[in-house]
Nucleic acid binder design. Structure first.
Length: 614
RNA sequence: UGCCCGAUGGUGUAACGGUAGCACAAGUGACUCUGAAUCACUUUGUCAUGGUUCAAAUCCAUGUCGGGCAGCCA
C-alpha cells in the first residue's frame, strides 16, 4: 500500500468536542494565542487520570501554537506539601518531554506579578515563559506557577467585591451556613454595610478571629436552584502555615474564588476541568464578571475524568494503599501513578498514545485496561531489545554436544528494527529452558518439548528429548536431549520445520537476575463496585519475585533501555539494581494465545506466558 | 428531593439532517526460528416512545437508565 492510501486512516491530531471548540475560537480570531493550564493540587502524586488531562491541555497548546502553564492549585495548606509539588513537576516534565516540552509555561526566575493597565483600569498579571522565551539555561531555573503567588491580588479582588456590595462577612458557623443554604435562607449578616464588611474582612486577615468564626461570602442568590450560587464562601480562616507562603496568611481563598482569578491573572483562555465542576461554572463566570475586569476572561470547559478497569483513581485511596503498606510507595510499579508506571517501564509515548485512543467526551465510562495494555505493548514491541531469559529453569543436557565446548550464536536484537543490530549468545552442553516449555504429558496442540519430541532452541539447534531424570521423590530435575547438530542457522538442516521454538540460556554462562513479576493490583475490574471495600479485592498475586537465569549480555543492561525477554514479557531495569545485582520489573506480558487455549488459564491476568507459568 | 450533565457493538469513541465508521476486545485463517509481531476475514450497535422532515444517531417532546453537585476540599 502506498503512502497516499494509508493517509486517511491516521489523523495527525486527535479530534474531540474541546478541540473543536478551541479550533472555532482560533478561527474566529478570539485570542492572540491559546493558553491552557494544568492545575493539580499538591496533595498527592499524579496518576494516569492526570495524564489524560495533561495530554489534553498540553496537546491543545501543542496543536494550536499555544502555551500550557503548570500551576499548583495550593489554596488549602492543611492538605498540601512540598513533597507533592516536587513529584508533580518531575512527572509532568517526564510525560511531555520530547513532545510538548516547548509548550510548558513556567514562571521566570524571580518573576513578580506585573501590573498592566487596560481599559483605563490596572490589574495584576503574571506572564508565562517557555524555553524559547528564556533560553535553555535560564529556563532551568523557571518554576511552576502557584495559586499562592496570587494571594495578595486575590485578596484585593475580594476587597473590590465587598466595595461593589457583592460580598459580605458572615458570622454563621459552618453548620449554620449549611443549614441556611439548604433551606435557601438568607444569612442574617447579608446586609452589613460595605464599611463594616471592609473592616471585618481586614480583621479576618489580621488574625483577629479563630478558625471558623466567620467567612467571606459572595452575595449572589440565596434561592438559586444551583447550590453554588447560594452565597458561596470565598474566604475561610485557617491559622495554618502554608508550604509556600509560610505564616503570611491566616485566611485562604476557596477553590472557586482562587481558580478563576488565577486563570485570569495568567491570561488563560481555555480553563479545562473535569465534569464535577460543571455546576461551578456559573460561579466561575459570576466572579469574573462581577469584578468588571479589563482583560479578556477565561472560559471553563469540562470533560469526563478517566475510569480504568482494575484500578483505583482517587488520590485519597492511593494514599491509603501507600500508608497501609499495601504497596511499597507511590512509585510502586503496581500503582496507576505516573511515577509508578514509569518505574514499571512504561514510556511517556505509550501513555500519550493511550490518551489519544481514549478520546475526550462528557460520558462517564469505564475504559478497558486492554486499551492501556495495547498501547504499552505496541510501543515496547517497537523499541524493546530482545533477550533470552529463563524465569523458572529446568536443566537440559545436550548429550551429543562436547563437554567443555562453548559455541557462539548470532541473535537478532529487534526484529522490528534492523538498526538495533545483532549480538552473540553462548551455547554449551548444559542449558536451562523454561519449566513450562516441557510437558511430560502434553495437552492437545502442545508444540513445545515433550518426551520423544522435537523443538527448536531459538537461534540454535533442533533438539529431541530422549530421557527424563527425576529425583527420588519423583520430581523432574533434568532432561537429556540430543541435538541435530546440522540444524543451526546456516546448517544443512536449518530449514527443517519443527512446530515449536523455545528460548534457553547456557547454564554455565547465565547470569542471575531478580525479576519482579507485577500483575493487576485488583482482581475485579471495578474494585469498589456496589460499595465494596477495595481492600477485599486486592490481588494476592500482584507481585511475585523470582530469580531468573538471563543471558550474560544482560549484565550490562541499561536503565533507559527496554527489553523483551523472548516469548515472555517486556522488562525494564529497576532503580534497585546495583553492580552485580540485576533487578528487572516486568512491565507487561506478551499476548499469549496459548494461555487462552489451555483450560488452566490464568486466574487474573489477561494473558501472558509468565502467568501460565505460575 | 432540587439543580446540572450524559446515553452509538462487549468496551472506548467517530459521524455536526444524507452510506453508522475507527480502535481495543473476541473469533477464524495465513505466516512464523517469539503460540509475539504482521496480514486477511468475521461477529456484535444508535436507550424507549412519539413528533418535525423527502430523509433523524443527529432537531423537538416525554419517559427510562446512568453520572455529578448539595465541604469553611479541590
Amino acid at each position: 500500500m502506498g503512502p497516499a492510501e494509508s493517509q486517511p486512516t491516521a489523523p495527525a491530531a486527535p479530534s474531540d468536542f474541546i478541540r473543536d471548540l478551541v479550533a472555532a475560537d482560533v478561527a474566529a480570531g478570539k485570542h492572540q494565542r491559546i493558553h491552557t493550564r494544568f492545575p493539580p493540587e499538591p496533595n498527592g502524586y499524579l496518576h494516569i487520570g492526570h495524564a489524560k488531562s495533561i495530554c489534553l491541555n498540553f496537546g491543545l497548546a501543542h496543536e494550536f501554537g499555544g502555551v500550557c502553564n503548570l500551576r499548583m492549585d495550593d489554596t488549602n495548606p492543611t492538605k498540601e506539601d512540598v513533597e507533592y509539588v516536587e513529584s508533580i513537576q518531575a512527572d509532568v516534565r517526564w510525560l511531555i518531554s520530547g513532545w510538548a516540552g516547548d509548550e510548558l509555561g513556567l514562571k521566570a526566575p524571580g518573576q513578580q506579578l506585573v501590573t498592566r493597565t487596560a481599559d483605563g483600569k490596572s490589574d495584576a498579571c503574571l506572564p508565562a515563559v517557555t524555553r524559547s522565551d528564556l533560553g535553555a539555561e535560564r529556563y532551568e531555573q523557571a518554576t511552576p506557577f502557584h495559586a499562592s503567588d496570587y494571594f495578595e491580588p486575590i485578596y484585593q479582588y475580594a476587597v473590590d467585591l465587598i466595595r461593589r456590595g457583592r460580598a459580605f462577612v458572615c458570622d454563621l458557623s459552618p453548620d449554620e451556613t449549611d443549614e441556611y443554604r439548604r433551606h435557601a435562607k438568607e444569612s442574617p449578616f447579608r446586609h452589613r454595610s460595605v464599611g463594616e464588611n471592609l473592616d471585618l474582612f481586614a480583621r479576618m486577615k489580621a488574625g483577629e478571629f479563630p478558625d471558623g468564626k466567620c467567612s467571606l461570602r459572595a452575595k449572589i442568590d440565596v434561592a438559586s436552584p444551583n447550590i453554588w450560587l447560594r452565597d458561596p464562601l470565598l474566604y475561610r480562616i485557617r491559622h495554618t502555615a502554608h508550604h509556600q507562603t509560610g505564616t503570611q496568611w491566616c485566611i485562604y481563598p476557596m477553590y472557586d474564588f482562587a481558580h478563576c482569578l488565577s486563570d485570569y491573572i495568567e491570561g488563560i483562555t481555555h480553563s479545562i476541568c473535569t465534569l464535577e465542576f460543571e455546576v461551578h461554572r456559573p460561579l466561575y463566570d459570576w466572579i469574573l464578571q462581577s469584578l468588571e475586569l479589563p482583560r479578556p476572561l477565561p472560559h471553563q470547559y469540562e470533560f469526563a475524568r478517566l475510569s480504568l478497569g482494575y484500578t483505583l483513581m482517587s488520590k485519597r485511596k492511593l494514599m491509603q494503599l501507600v500508608n497501609e503498606k499495601l504497596v511499597t510507595g507511590w512509585d510502586d510499579p503496581r500503582m496507576p501513578t505516573i511515577c509508578g508506571m514509569r518505574r514499571r517501564g512504561v514510556t511517556p509515548q505509550a501513555l500519550r498514545q493511550f490518551a489519544y485512543h481514549i478520546g475526550i467526551t462528557k460520558y462517564n465510562g469505564l475504559t478497558d485496561v486492554a486499551v492501556l495494555e495495547h498501547a504499552i505493548r505496541e510501543d515496547l514491541n517497537r523499541r524493546a531489545l530482545r533477550r533470552m531469559a529463563v524465569l523458572r529453569p529446568i536443566k537440559v543436557v545436550i548429550t551429543n554436544f562436547p563437554e567443555g565446548q562453548t559455541g557462539e550464536l548470532e541473535a537478532v536484537n529487534n526484529p522490528e528494527d534492523e538498526s538495533a543490530g545483532k549480538r552473540r549468545v553462548p551455547f554449551s552442553r548444559e542449558l536451562f529452558i523454561e519449566r513450562d516449555d516441557f510437558a511430560e504429558v502434553p495437552p492437545p496442540k502442545f508444540f513445545r518439548l515433550k518426551p520423544g519430541g522435537e523443538v527448536r532452541l531459538k537461534y540454535a539447534y533442533i533438539i529431541k528429548c530422549d530421557e527424563l531424570v527425576k529425583d527420588p521423590a519423583g520430581n523432574l530435575i533434568e532432561l537429556r536431549c540430543t541435538a541435530d547438530l546440522d540444524s543451526k542457522s546456516g546448517g544443512a538442516t536449518a530449514g527443517r520445520k519443527v512446530k515449536g521454538t523455545i528460548h534457553w540460556v547456557s547454564a554455565a554462562h547465565a547470569v542471575d537476575a531478580e525479576v519482579r513479576l507485577y500483575d493487576r493490583l485488583f482482581t475485579e475490574a471495578e474494585p469498589e463496585k456496589d460499595g465494596r471495600d477495595f481492600k477485599s479485592v486486592l490481588n494476592p498475586h500482584s507481585l511475585e519475585v523470582l530469580t531468573a537465569k538471563v543471558e550474560p549480555g544482560l549484565a550490562q543492561a541499561q536503565a533507559d533501555a527496554r527489553y523483551q525477554f523472548e516469548r515472555l514479557a517486556y522488562f525494564a531495569l529497576d532503580g534497585d539494581s546495583r553492580p552485580g545485582r540485576l533487578v528487572f520489573n516486568r512491565t507487561i506480558t506478551l499476548k499469549d494465545a496459548w494461555a487462552r487455549e489451555t483450560p488452566k488459564g490464568p486466574p487474573v491476568a489477561a494473558g501472558g506466558l509468565a502467568s501460565v507459568l505460575s
